[in-house]
Amino acid sequence: MANVIGIIGAGTMGSGIAQVAAVAGYGVILYDIEAPALDRSMKQIENNLAKAIEKNKLTAAEKETALAKIKTSVDFSQLKNSTTVIEAAAERLDIKQGIFQRLDDLLPHESIIATNTSSLSVTVLGAATRRPDRVIGIHFFNPAHIMKLVEIIKGIETSQTTISRITSLAKEFGKTPVLASDTPGFIVNRIARPFYGEALRLLGEGVASADEIDRIVKKSGGFKMGPFELMDLIGIDINFSVSKSVYEQFFHEPRYRPHPIQQQMVDANLLGRKTGKGFYEY
């Protein structure tokens, strides 16, 4: 049987993952509950591939081959021949649990069910199936077709075989996989917390202004972006919700405590670049 990758959810992440899989030569079934989402997704993939041609990273023929590998569907049962399904649906536990139960019923015994979650527990999703040893996290970073990093997350029941298979798959996708245990924020979203948290505290305590902190972090620390410009880019609301999620999941460990400045910015709808104003004006 051919190696087919099923992908659930045709949002930004699902589209990026479908593109990466197709370029790597895999047949892809891209599923979404809404047909228009699938159309938008294919347009996004075409645009991305066209940009790759402009940058001489891809030929026109390779683009066509990749596009031909992707089949879209609003019919869940079309995923039935997938050797691996990567779920990239909305970041809500009840939605994902429902999907995992349906996949468990639909897929062959050996197939792996992977989730692209950035904040939910892989172990909890595994428990929604009868195959927790073949449930794993594969966390891509946005934009998925560009960012090299993939976090592979092992739930407490995930088997070594599943880890090896997903790690190989990530490498074939041209990614650099790292292995993390199933703990809140995994690696990046956890260890990066102080970058924002301490910067917010320094601002709140009046040690320096936001633009001065950014200048220091770039020129003294050698970081490409300062914490405040980065929060503006990510979206202050998104960053705040990740902070809250990690804080809650660690049962209020004080190292992860969000800062009132974040709440206030969100309350004022000053969310960063996307609203034209955050810590800076755009």
């Binding site: 970073f141 990093l149 976090e151 650099t176 790292v178 292995l179 690696i187 990046v188 990066a192 970081f223």
Partner: peptide, 20 residues
Amino acid sequence: EEVASTDDIDTAMKLGTNYP
């Protein structure tokens, strides 16, 4: 806490968030 190995932590922060 054995969240990941030393190398994987360093790789993740350099590639995932562009740390120097």
